[in-house]
C-alpha cells in the first residue's frame, strides 16, 4: 500500500465520509450512549476494534464467500467479534459493560460496520481494508466523543466523571438533548466542510489560472520569437 493511498483512506474515513456527520450512519448508539465521555469513548473503541477485525476477515475471505450469501456471512463474522468484545468487557471492564447495556449486542446491526464491509472490504485487499476500518472507526470515535463532551459538560456539569461546576441542564442528559446536539453538529460539520471545500476549489482554480496564464505568456513569447525568426529569415 502506497503512502498516497493510505492518506486518501485516512481522509475519507475521518472527514469526507465521516460515518456520523457526513453519512449519518449508526445513529442509534450515537444518540443513546453519548451522555457521557467515558461511555462514548468505550463505544467508539469497541466499534473501531470490531470494524478492523471484521474488515480484515471479510477482505481475506472476499474471493471465497459466494456473492448470493455474502450478507449473512458478513453478519456472522461481525456477530462473532461482537461476542468476543462483549465477553472481554464483561470480564475486564464491567462498569462499561453495564452502562453500554443492550447497545453492546446491537453493534451487530450497526450500519457503519456492515456498510464498510459491503462497500470497501469486500472489494479491496487486506491491508487497505484494515486501514479503512481503523480510520472509519477513528472518525466515529471522534464524532461520538465530541457529542459526549458537549452532553456531559452541559447535562451533568462534569468531564469524564470529574465535577466541573454545580450547574447542569438535565435536558442535555436525556434523549431530547441528544437529538438536538447531534442535529446541530451535523449542520455545523457540513457548513465547515463546505467552506473548506470551496476554499480548496478556489485555490486550485487560482493555481490553474496562474499556470495557464504562464503557459500562455510562454506561448506568446515563443510565438513572437518565431515571428521574429521568420522575419529574419
Amino acid at each position: 500500500m502506497t503512502g498516497s493511498k493510505f492518506k486518501e483512506i485516512a481522509k475519507n474515513g475521518i472527514l469526507v465520509n465521516n460515518p456520523t456527520f457526513r453519512l449519518v450512519l449508526g445513529t442509534c448508539p450515537t444518540l443513546a450512549i453519548s451522555s457521557s465521555v467515558f461511555n462514548s469513548l468505550g463505544m467508539g473503541l469497541a466499534v473501531t476494534f470490531i470494524l478492523i477485525c471484521s474488515n480484515i476477515i471479510i477482505s481475506a475471505l472476499r474471493k471465497v464467500i459466494p456473492n448470493e450469501v455474502r450478507i449473512p456471512a458478513f453478519i456472522l463474522i461481525i456477530a462473532t467479534f461482537v461476542t468476543v468484545v462483549r465477553m472481554f468487557l464483561y470480564r475486564y471492564v464491567p462498569s462499561l459493560y453495564k452502562s453500554l447495556g443492550v447497545f453492546l449486542p446491537l453493534i451487530v446491526v450497526n450500519c457503519i460496520i456492515l456498510g464498510r464491509a459491503e462497500s470497501f472490504a469486500s472489494k479491496n485487499p487486506v491491508l487497505d481494508s484494515a486501514a479503512d476500518g481503523l480510520f472509519t472507526g477513528i472518525g466515529f470515535t471522534l464524532a461520538i466523543t465530541l457529542i459526549g463532551i458537549v452532553r456531559e459538560v452541559l447535562g451533568a456539569g462534569a468531564f469524564l466523571g470529574y465535577k466541573l461546576w454545580d450547574f447542569s441542564i438535565d435536558y442535555f442528559g436525556n434523549t431530547a438533548g441528544a437529538f438536538l446536539v447531534y442535529g446541530l453538529m451535523i449542520a455545523g460539520f457540513n457548513a465547515l466542510y463546505e467552506k473548506f471545500e470551496n476554499n480548496r476549489k478556489r485555490r486550485n482554480y487560482i493555481e490553474e489560472m496562474r499556470a495557464s496564464s504562464l503557459a500562455i505568456e510562454a506561448g506568446e513569447t515563443k510565438a513572437t520569437e518565431k515571428v521574429e525568426e521568420k522575419k529574419e529569415a
Binding site: 442535529g183 446541530l184 451535523i186 449542520a187 457540513n190 457548513a191
Partner: peptide, 15 residues
C-alpha cells in the same frame, strides 16, 4: 439555511 435542511432539522424536531 441549506445546512439545516434534511437531517439536522429533522433531529431538532425529534428533540
Amino acid at each position: 439555511s441549506k445546512h439545516l435542511k434534511g437531517f439536522p432539522i429533522t433531529m431538532a424536531t425529534a428533540s
